[in-house]
Simulated assay, not measured.
Amino acid sequence: MAGLGREGTNPDVSLLQDINGLARSAPPWFNRAMEFAGEYGIIIALVLLMLWCCWTVRRLGDERESVSALAALVWTPFAAGAALLVNMPIRDFVERPRPFAEHQGIQVLARGETGFSFVSDHATLAMALGVGLFMAHRRIGFAAIGLALVEGYCRVYLGGHYPTDVVGGFALGTAVTLLFAPLALALLTPPLTALARSRRARRLVRSRRAVARSGRREQDCEQELERHETGLAA
């Protein structure tokens, strides 16, 4: 299947040339910024979003909601790793060469790229992280998915991948994250719930403020129940 993406009327190649061709007229500093973003920057930003999401979900007042979100967050890096492992045999089976190895005139900004092109590891990793964060926290997840889309654009701009390599990576990262999520959450939720209810270890799962707020809520519920029972007895 090594013939994918050769010259002709292939829209995949045309879109690659349109996007990558923008690098010709772009200033050098912009190309360097795109190179950093496509190779490392966006992945670093996604990791920082994971840390922000962890800080956010630990502060949720509802214990069940907090534990559920944290379980999804814990699953996220494992999902990304699993998606990359699944991609290894796919790349070896398809054997699609890199665009710059197949077409003349490609602006090669992705330095040191080796191996086959389909599916893009960067796109797979970014979307797996984005979908996992969306499962944990909707607003943060939207931002993460947006970053994943930018990552895909960067990979084409740098000349390291065809657009379909990126789309395949998005599909693979999403599929692996969602397909195994029910099993992962079923395994992660019980131990995280036990940690949340442990006096010594619960701060690993929930912040001090969230625990205090939850405790006040439970106390208010108990007082309301007592007043209701007293009213019935009278």
Rank of each mutant, 00 (worst) to 15 (best):
A37N: 03
T174Y: 12
V47M: 11
R32T: 10
R213F: 11
L22H: 00
S117Q: 06
T76M: 01
C53E: 12
L85S: 12
L232W: 14
R138N: 07
A126F: 02
L70W: 12
R58L: 12
V176A: 08
E218N: 09
G141I: 11
R227Q: 13
H161D: 01
G38T: 02
E113A: 13
L147Q: 01
V94Y: 05
V211Y: 03
M50S: 05
L179I: 09
L195Y: 02
E95C: 14
T114N: 08
T9M: 11
V131I: 15
V131K: 00
N87W: 09
L133D: 03
G173N: 02
L16C: 04
W29M: 03
P163H: 04
A210K: 02
G141A: 11
N87P: 05
S198T: 03
F180W: 08
G215F: 11
A212K: 13
F116M: 00
E222G: 08
R64P: 00
V67A: 03
A101D: 12
V119M: 01
E95V: 02
G160S: 05
V13M: 07
L149H: 03
E7Y: 14
Y153H: 02
Q219H: 14
A234F: 15
A143L: 11
T193K: 11
R6Y: 14
R216A: 13
L49S: 01
M34C: 06
E226S: 15
H137C: 11
I90G: 02
L185M: 14
R138H: 15
